[in-house]
Design a protein around this nucleic acid. Structure first.
Lengths: 168, 168
DNA sequence: TCTACTGTTTCGATCATCGAATTATCCGCC
DNA sequence: GGCGGATAATTCGATGATCGAAACAGTAGA
């Protein structure tokens, strides 16, 4: 809005920062509405996304890892998993090797349903990115990576929210 | 991590979606830690950012607009402003023209402090974007804009969380 | 002036999250 | 082979952000 898309002047750092901030705020709203639509909350939606992502990579997700990724306390994570389990989106399964651990699995039925949840957004993204060629995608990917890393670096300087001592 | 940065293969839609999701989760964490650092919460930080952005544009911010932007109920917004006002980050000022309206202003002192809050991130971003040329920035800006719009479009299809009837 | 409408606030209730304490399990050591 | 410290997850009570509904203040139009 403030920027003229086809203007010749290159976006300044401030322009990009602002765009990024707009995007993250919108993402917040998205998670919020998404949750309202599916009986979840922002955190639940984020958690589900992380669990599904882990499942897709073939790795099991554990409550403690989830807590760390979400920046949530262990107790809050337990409550979170309780909620997700109550509606059948995840299942607890005690790990065979180490019986203290709990592996969070996604039931077959729920897995497909879960994917369906994220498809509309994926499709909208794909459609909006149609005009981007290989080189441009490369640029965008690099941008997203370094920006994420920058945020991580800055926030890592501040003491982590919970007891979570040193994490490297 | 899953992607090879200098690989010749162009990032697929899924790659980009994943990167975007990683970024937004990281942004969530950032807001969380940022809040913990400054005695605010995620929503408060987002709200402060929006108020400062409006102030920078010279426009006044009102509770109702803020509520809409954040996807928050009016009552929650009042409580939010109460919190921000209590720590001196914003001030309420009834609009002269229409005395129902409340203009949210940022006290001179708090304004500079507020800016200081966001500077570290802005600097980290700027540093991480040094290698991006004009054309690349143009690409990135376009990407961020269309992606934000895509999210907005998808979530707009779902009924808004609150009473917020038809908007647009 | 009366009425409809808009912007903001108050009130009581709900529920996500927190910190501290608890249970169960694993691992190293004597 | 059992003991003690560490780790994973959970339970419990408390706090507080958010909600919905209703009240309040102010504006605009008949």
């Amino acid at each position: 809005m403030t920027r003229d898309t086809e203007g010749e002047a290159a976006p300044t750092d401030r322009d990009l920062t602002r765009l990024l901030q707009t995007l993250t705020v919108e993402s917040d709203r998205y998670a919020e509405r998404f949750g309202a639509r599916h009986g979840l909350h922002r955190t639940d939606a984020n958690a589900l996304a992380l669990i599904l992502a882990a499942a897709r990579r073939g790795e099991p997700m554990s409550p403690s890892v989830l807590a760390r990724e979400l920046g949530l306390s262990p107790s809050a994570t337990t409550a979170l998993i309780d909620r997700l389990e109550a509606v059948g989106h995840v299942e607890r399964e005690r790990s065979a090797g180490d019986r203290r651990r709990v592996a969070l699995t996604v039931p077959e039925a729920g897995l497909e349903e879960g994917r369906q949840m994220f498809i509309p957004l994926a499709q909208a993204f794909a459609a909006s990115w149609e005009g981007f060629g290989a080189a441009e995608r490369e640029v965008v990917a690099r941008f997203l990576e370094v920006s994420t890393e920058a945020m991580r670096a800055v926030s890592a300087e501040w003491e982590p929210p919970h007891g979570a001592q040193r994490r490297r």
